[in-house]
Amino acid sequence: MAKIMFVNRNAPHGTIYAWEGLEVVLIFGAYENELSAVYMDDAVFSLKKGQDTSALGIKGFLQTLPVLEDYGCEKIYVDKESMEKRGLKTDDFAIPVEVMDSAGIGKIMEEQDVILPF
């Protein structure tokens, strides 16, 4: 059993990393690990309500985000400074999140066994 944290920093859709950062949770959920995710820098946009990727012909995130919890990723943290810098507020997000300041994010990272960046 390991404490594994996915640290998402890339913007959605421009590259595949944000998508893979979700895929990985769905697989890791089948194993006995303690999972959590952080969204910071441009990745805060991955959580935004109202994303419509149909014109791009790619799968969006809005079906996956609400089930992260069912796959064992119960804690979703958002970096406060990244969110505010981009003009976002907590009610812009499609799922409930815990907003944390820089020191808080640093502290929870320190508690992990493994950090996987996406």
């Binding site: 910071m40 820098d41 990244s82 994010i105 640093g106």
Partner: peptide, 12 residues
């Protein structure tokens, strides 16, 4: 890129 800045901001 702002990676170094973000890192410095969060690092203990």
């Amino acid at each position: 890129k702002s990676s170094l800045e973000s890192c410095i901001r969060v690092a203990q």
